[in-house]
Design a protein around this nucleic acid. Structure first.
Lengths: 344, 344
DNA sequence: TTGTACGCGTTATCAT
DNA sequence: ATGATAACGCGTACAA
C-alpha cells in the first residue's frame, strides 16, 4: 500500500495535477465544481500532501520559527504563548523547534532556514555566543530573546531583547545589602557552564563591592557540574543543604533562579529554620511559584510578555525590510515577597 | 546571493554530484582524498544540504517523533529526557514536535509521517480520542503515552502506556475518606473540556460512593471555561478562593493536578488558615514541587521515567516487526506529604 | 572510484 | 478554467 500522491488524485478525478494543486492551495482560477469534486476525493482517499516536496518547490513560506535551547521552563512557556498569538495575528505560521543541549543552535537555524524557507527566527534563551562570521550566514531576520548575550558577540551585530542580568542581579543583591545583610550567600550554576549564571554572579560581586562587603568564596556555591537541569529546585535544595551543614555563616541566600530559591527554602525548613526570620531568600526570574510559595519569594521579575511582544515587533520590522538592527534591554521588577526582611 | 547547492560544490571541486553526496553521507565507496577535499569546500562555502530535498528522496529515515499537545509541563519534561536518551541509545534521531491546542494531533502525525519518513511516533499527553477509521491511516508504529484514552476508543486498537486515572483518583479520594474526611471538595477542569479531568472526577465520585458519602455538587469546582492553562497554579488558586468565600463547607480539597493544589494552598494561607490543621490538601501527578512546597503536598506520583522507558520499549518492539499491539497500565504511588491529616 | 541521468511530489509557467 | 511540463535539491542505479 503505497502512499497516495497528487498524481493519483488527479488521475482519479480525471483532471491534471495542476488543477489539484490549485484546489489544495485555494487558487482563484478554478471552477467551484471541479474544486469540490477534488476536495471530496482527497478526503475520501485520505490524501495528505507531502510537505517536503512543497517546501522544496516553494520559494518562500510564511513561517516564523522559535528555537528554544534545552528544556522548556515555565518562564519560556509564558513567552511562547505570546509568540504564538502574535505570529498568528500576523497571519504567519508558527514553528517551535527545540534544539538539544549538545546541538549548535546556529547550525540548526541554518538548516531549518533552508528546509522550511523561514521568514524569521527567534532564538529563545541559551547563552548565545557565536562568531560573527557564522552569524553572517543567517540570511533571514532573527532576534535573540532573553538570556544573556555573550560579551564575545558585539551587541551591534544583531537584534536582541533581553534584560541586563548583571545589573538586575546587582539590584537584587544591593537590595539585600540595604536590608542590612552582610553575609549573603549565592547559589549559581557551575563556573564551567557558559550561562547567565556567570552574569548574575558578576552582579552579585559588584553589589557586594559597592556596599563594601568583601566577597567570601565560601558563600559562593555552585551547582555540581555535569548535571542535567542546573536551574532546578533539586539543585537549589542540595546546594542549600550543603551550605547549611557547612560552617559558613550567612543571613541571606540569593539563588539565581526561582526554582533554586524554592529548593533552598525547603532545605531551610527542613533544618527547622524560618524564612525570613532566620534567613532571607531571594530568587530571580519572576516565575509564578514565587507568588504561590509559602512564604512568597522575593524575586526579580522579568517582564516576559512584554519582552515577547517586543521580540515579535522587532522581528517583523526586520522582515518588512528595515535594515536597522535593533536592541532593547528591559528592566526587571524587584518584586518583594515575604521571604526577605531587614536584619535584626 | 543565491543559496548554494550540491551542484555548486560538485562544480567547484570538479567532481560529480554523486561524489559529493557520498562524501556527505559517509558512503564507503569514496577516495579519502576526494572526500576530504569535498568536506573542506563544504565548510568553506558554508554549504548546508536541503533537508526537504533529502526527505523527499529518501524512502526512510531513522527518526522517532514525539508529539506533545499543548504546553510542556515539568511532568512531560522528565519523560522527554528519557525519550531523548533511549532514542539516542538506539541510534535513532529524536524529533520533538509540539502540536498546538487547536490542531488535530492525528492530522499532524499523518503529515509528519510523510514529511519526515518517520519510523515511529509517541503521542504524549492529550486526551486521545479519534475514530478507528482515522487511526487506521497511521502506517508507522505509534504509542500513546500518559494521559487518558477516551473510552470511545477501543483500547485494543492501539498500543499505550498510561495510568488508570479513574482508579488512582479513586485511591486518593478514598485515602482522604479513610482519614475521616467527609466533606471533600474537588478542583477540576471545565466539564466542557475533553480531558483527564473528567476521569479524575469520576474516580472522586466513585470513592465517595464507596464510602457512603453523597456527592455534593457544591463541592465540585470547575476551572472557568475557555481559559488557557487550566491545570495551572493560577486557576487552582482562584477556584479555591471562590470555594473559601462561598458558604460551602469542606475539610479537604483534592486538586486534580499538583499545580492546582499549590494554588489552592496559597488561597488557604491567605485566608489565615493552616494546612493540614484546618484543611487537608491533595494533588495529583507527583511533580517535584509537591516535595519542595511547605508543607509538602500529598500526591499521586505517576512513575514518569518508567512510563517513558516502557513507551520506548513498546515502540521499538513494534518497529522491529512485532505486530502485537501492547498496552501497559502503570500504578501510581500515593505519596503522603504533610498537607493531609486525619480529621480531628 | 567516479560521473550521468532519472525520479521523489509539488508548484509555477505557459500554452490551450 | 485547465493541462502539460519544467524546475526545486538531492540520492542512487547504472554505466564507465
Amino acid at each position: 500500500m503505497e502512499a497516495i500522491t497528487i498524481k493519483d488524485i488527479a488521475r482519479i478525478c480525471g483532471v491534471g495535477v495542476s488543477t489539484v494543486s490549485r484546489a489544495i492551495n485555494d487558487h482563484p482560477d478554478i471552477n467551484e465544481k471541479t474544486k469540490s469534486l477534488i476536495m471530496k476525493t482527497i478526503k475520501e482517499y485520505n490524501y495528505v500532501p507531502n510537505n517536503s516536496a512543497r517546501n522544496l518547490k516553494r520559494s518562500e513560506s510564511n513561517t516564523i520559527a522559535v528555537l528554544i535551547k534545552g528544556i522548556t521552563n515555565s518562564f519560556f512557556n509564558s513567552m511562547l504563548k505570546v509568540f504564538e498569538n502574535e505570529i498568528q495575528k500576523k497571519k504567519y505560521s508558527f514553528l517551535l523547534h527545540r534544539v538539544e543541549e549538545h546541538e549548535d543552535e546556529l547550525d540548526v537555524a541554518l538548516q531549518l532556514e533552508k528546509e522550511k524557507r523561514l521568514k524569521g527566527i527567534v532564538f529563545l534563551g541559551g547563552y548565545f555566543s557565536h562568531s560573527k562570521d557564522k552569524l553572517k550566514q543567517m540570511k533571514v531576520p532573527f532576534v535573540l530573546s532573553t538570556g544573556g548575550i555573550s560579551e564575545i558577540i558585539d551587541k551591534k551585530s544583531c537584534s536582541y531583547v533581553m534584560v541586563d542580568d548583571v545589573k538586575e542581579s546587582y539590584r537584587m543583591v544591593d537590595y539585600l545589602c540595604k536590608l542590612g545583610h552582610k553575609k549573603i550567600a549565592i547559589i549559581t550554576t557551575p563556573p564551567s557552564e557558559e550561562s547567565i549564571g556567570k552574569l548574575r554572579l558578576e552582579g552579585y560581586k559588584q553589589a557586594l563591592k559597592t556596599n563594601n562587603i568583601p566577597v567570601d568564596e565560601n558563600r559562593i556555591r555552585y551547582v555540581e557540574d555535569d548535571t542535567f537541569d542546573t536551574f532546578s529546585m533539586k539543585y537549589g535544595y542540595e546546594v542549600a543543604k550543603e551550605l547549611l551543614e557547612s560552617d559558613t555563616d550567612f543571613t541571606a541566600i540569593f539563588a539565581i533562579s526561582d526554582s533554586m530559591a524554592v529548593g533552598a527554602c525547603k532545605a531551610i525548613f527542613e533544618k527547622g529554620k524560618r524564612i525570613p526570620e532566620d534567613y532571607s531568600i531571594a530568587g530571580y526570574d519572576g516565575m509564578d511559584i514565587t507568588f504561590y510559595y509559602q512564604p512568597s519569594i522575593t524575586t526579580m521579575r522579568q517582564p516576559a510578555p512584554e519582552m515577547a511582544e517586543e521580540t515579535i515587533r522587532i522581528l517583523f520590522e526586520l522582515i518588512e525590510g528595515s535594515s536597522e538592527r535593533e536592541g532593547k534591554i528591559f528592566s526587571a521588577d524587584l518584586v518583594v515577597g515575604e521571604s526577605t526582611q531587614a536584619i535584626r
